[in-house]
Structures are given as C-alpha cells and as structure tokens.
Write a protein that binds this DNA or RNA. Structure first.
Lengths: 191, 191
DNA sequence: CCGAGTGATGTCAGTAACTGTCATCAAACG
DNA sequence: CGTTTGATGACAGTTACTGACATCACTCGG
C-alpha cells in the first residue's frame, strides 16, 4: 500500500492543517511551533524543514495562485487589453479560492487578527503583482502599463476578496471580482 | 547644563544611529540587538523600551511622514481634485526625505537587502496610504475614490523614490514625483 | 532643606523562534 | 545483499523579545 512506509503520509499537509486549527482555536501568537508539530505527530525541527517560519505555513498556497495568474495572462486572447488579461487571471484565482471557501475564510480571519501575518500577506500580494506584471510584459505590454495594470488588478482583487469574506452579501467571489473591476473602470474615468 | 543628568541625552536617537550604522556595516541579520545597545552605551532591555522590535528602529520616522501627508491633504485648496491633493502631499513627503538624503539612501539600501525589512516597509506604506485615504474622506471625497487615489499616490511615490535612490539621473526627489505623476496621468488615459 | 514620588535605566530570569549537526532507519537501487 | 538516499529525530546553541524587580538622579510639595 502506498503511504504505509516508515512514516505517516503527507507530513507537510498534516503540519499545515494542525497549524491552521491551532491558529483558529488559540490565535497565532499563543500557538507554539512545538504544539503544531505535536498535533501533526512530528517534531519542531521537522516543521522548519517544511516551512521556513511559523507564518509561512499559512502562505504556501500562494505559489499555486502565482501559476494560475501567470498561465491565465499568457493564455488570454491576443486582442485582450492588459486589464482584460488581468481580469481573466483574477477570475481564475477566484475560482481556486472558491474551491476551498471555508478554508480561505478561516485563514483570512487568522491573518486579520495578527499584524505579523498581515506583513507576510502584503509581501505575498506584492509578489503576485510582480508575477502579473511579468506575464504582461511577455505579452509585449510596456513596463509602466504592465506594472500599473498589475498593481491595480491586485488592489481590485483585495477589495473583492474582502467583500466576499465579510459575507454581507452572499455572492461568489468571481462575481465580486467582476463587480469591483466594473467599479474601477467607472472610477478611473475621473481620476 | 541641560543634558548632563544621570544619563547621556537622546538615548532613542543614539540607538537609531547605532542601529543604522551596524546594519550598514554588517547587514541587518548579522547585527544583534545587544551590539546596537552596546554601541549606544545602553542595554538590550533599553533598546526594546524605545523600539518595539529590531526592525522598527528603521521605521520610526514614518509617523512624521503620516503627519506631513495628512496636513498637506487637509490644507490643499478647496478646488483641488483628490489626485491634486495627493500630489501636494507627496511633494511634502519628498521634501522631508530630501532634508536627509544620505540617511534615506543608506536606510533604503539596508531595507533592499533584507526581506523582513521589506515586509515592514510594505505595511508602513499601506499605513501611509490609509492616512491619505482618511484625509481625503475628511475633504468629502467618497470612499472608493479616496482609497483609489491614495493607493495610486503611494504607488507613484514608490516609483519616484526608487528612481531617486538609484541615482541614474541626478534630480531632486520632488522632481521625480512630479514626473511620475505626469506619467500616471498619461497612462491612466488608456487603462 | 527634606522626604516621597517619578521616570529612565539596569539586572536577571524565562520563553520560544529558528539553526546547525549528527544519528537513525525504512525504502529504493544496483 | 550491500549501499545509498531521504525524511525524520535528537539535541545543543543563538537570539529576539518579555516580565518583574532594583536603582538612583531628579522633582516637587511641605
């Protein structure tokens, strides 16, 4: 049988689940890495072999988003403007998050309660923006427009994601993304 | 005589100078708080009474920028558009940094060499953006436009500051700010 | 002039994040 | 069947940060 080796399978995933559970139950800063490791049936040292630090365990999924964004921009039709391509990419990212709605909301609640995690989130978002800009440049978009469209796109996504997490209206994330983009196009007219 | 009390004067300033010196000489992560305190003639414990953590010592000046931005937006002429008001504020911030040009450049070199410091910088910039947005709202600007103008303004400032720090052209920061804003207005036309 | 604060600092012990190094041992490989 | 490999454990060490208490020049009411 697979996964019946010397160790229980998916150590990395067990660590990630144990960490989120504990962060939800007791808060990020009242959770020690030793406790996470214990719940996952591993040692502290092993945690740090899988995740660079105690925060990173919440952000490992961001590389998957990077790939989704890059692919979507690359595959957008030739005729798409930079912002059109970004819009397609953001809907792809929205679909990924919607697959694990409850997980995404729990995770965001943890982040919202802790400043260190917000710092890490900002740098990850900046990195996503960089990925978008790079993908746009490879479509031949000039440097300034690529950077601007990417930054604005991420800003729109943050706004839409926040509305989705807040649950004041029960809509799909992708719908909030489309609405926020429409709002941007309206506002941008008189900036 | 003033400053001849039980302790040498300006402990906080001495700590900040010692920290920047050491971060420049040996890098952020090869400098311990004990070394900073020693150079300042104080103890490690006292460092943490003045600065919340080892990073914060590089960002204490950001509250001064907050005040400059808020005041400039508040005092901008009634007729100014949101982006006009932001432009005035950014030039005020530029003037502050230009007063301590060498300090600003050294500090930025240290930040550019360390990911943890970049995280802290991003959250400080987000906070400045929040300050701008708040000041705009108090002028009666609607929520969405205030947020957008503030975020775009900070993005423009980052871009201008980078060009100033890079020194490929020897211009004043305030000039780079004006040029970058002009660039934005041009690009924004066809986003 | 004196005695009770006050505030900035020192001292010291403790927690926990992270790192380096070496040992272990099942599984894969030849 | 011997060797190598890779994930893990064990353990010691550094350092960021915190809490509790001590110190002592200065201040201010009496």
């Amino acid at each position: 049988m697979p996964g019946m080796g010397r160790w229980q399978p998916d150590a990395r995933g067990r660590l990630a689940r144990a960490a989120l559970e504990l962060y939800v139950e007791r808060g990020f800063d009242r959770t020690s890495v030793a406790e996470i490791a214990e719940r996952a049936g591993l040692t502290e040292r092993t945690f740090f072999r899988h995740y660079a630090d105690k925060r990173e365990v919440l952000f490992a999924g961001s590389s998957a988003l990077q790939e989704v964004l890059a692919r979507a921009v690359a595959e957008a039709p030739e005729s798409a403007t930079p912002l059109d391509a970004v819009a397609v990419a953001l809907e792809g990212a929205a679909a990924v998050l919607e697959e694990r709605q409850e997980h995404a909301r729990q995770r965001q609640a943890v982040i919202d309660a802790n400043a260190e995690l917000q710092e890490r989130e900002l740098i990850k978002l900046a990195s996503l923006s960089g990925t978008l800009a790079e993908a746009l440049r490879e479509r031949g978009v000039d440097e300034a427009s690529a950077g601007l469209a990417a930054e604005v796109g991420i800003a729109v996504f943050k706004f839409a994601f926040r509305r989705w997490v807040d649950r004041t209206e029960e809509k799909e994330l992708s719908r909030f993304v489309r609405e926020s983009l429409a709002g941007l196009r309206a506002v941008a007219a008189d900036v």
